[in-house]
Design a protein around this nucleic acid. Structure first.
Length: 244
DNA sequence: AACTGCACCAACCGCCTGACA
DNA sequence: GTGTCAGGCGGTTGGTGCAGT
């Protein structure tokens, strides 16, 4: 676990501290960055008096200390958006995070991985599972593929109406525009998916640097789909996406 | 009460890329 | 053209808390 200051002192002065951040370290890093900015991360670590690598400081700032981070758990709407964007962009967590304000790539990655595990376990229980896999496989390719299938199913079932800043993905019943509820629609009715999903295509095509969070959405689509067309539409968007 | 399995989360590791000398 | 360094990214690991047995 986290070594104490005394233990640190007993080691080489140059030895980098690892493990969980203490409140004091957080305070040092936060006040340094808010007062002086970042500059280079290695200098931040040095100037803030932290025995941490620049990488570690950067990670702590981006994933925890940044003032504009959301603290509440990922909502169902955000989860749906993550699923949709993962389908679209693959495991490019930073690209996905750039489209979900207040969320970090690490947070999204953790959410995704736990979701994959959950879906996969449900599937294993349901149909006897992938018995050819070794138990220590972890999140190997075969396991992930099985889980991906489940998640594709989840896209068509779980999406619900919610305005996001820049991107919207939602669905309502075919015969009704009342889609405010986050509950699943009855499966007896074919749902219609509405999708307003934006991406930075224009800027990238012009060779401009992709903005991180400030202006992530420069082009949008707003269409309605039957359920079986929805995933195809998301996939087709990927052809229009620039390499990010 | 003790144990076990699971979910969640924070952080590290290794690799890649771009900037710069 | 090449080497070095810092930053960024995705994958993975380890710790913690909670629920179930």
């Amino acid at each position: 676990m986290v070594s104490t200051e005394k233990e640190e002192g007993e080691h080489s002065a140059k030895k980098m501290r690892k493990g969980l951040w203490s409140p004091d370290e957080d305070e040092r890093l936060y006040s340094h960055i808010t007062n002086y900015g970042v500059g280079t991360w290695s200098s931040v670590a040095q100037l803030a008096g932290l025995k941490r690598s620049g990488k570690s400081c950067r990670l702590r700032w981006l994933n925890y200390l940044q003032p504009d981070l959301k603290r509440e758990p990922i909502s169902k709407q955000e989860g749906d958006l993550i699923v949709s964007l993962q389908k679209l962009l693959g495991n490019r967590w930073s690209a996905i995070a750039a489209r979900i304000p207040g969320r970090t790539d690490n947070e999204i990655k953790n959410y995704w991985n736990s979701r994959i595990r959950k879906k996969h376990r449900q599937r294993m229980r349901a149909d006897g599972g992938y018995q050819s896999q070794s138990p220590e496989m972890g999140m190997g390719q075969a396991e992930e593929k099985g889980a991906q299938d489940s998640i594709t199913d989840g896209i068509s079932l779980d999406l619900c109406g919610q305005a996001m800043s820049g991107g919207q993905v939602g669905h309502g019943a075919t015969t009704s525009h009342n889609s405010n509820s986050a509950d699943h629609q009855p499966s007896s009715q074919l749902p219609v998916f509405s999708c307003k999903l934006a991406h930075p295509g224009v800027a990238a095509q012009n060779g401009e640097q992709q903005p991180s969070l400030a202006v992530p959405f420069l082009k949008s689509y707003q269409v309605n789909f039957a359920e079986e067309e929805y995933v195809d539409f998301l996939m087709s968007l990927s052809d229009d996406l620039p390499e990010i």
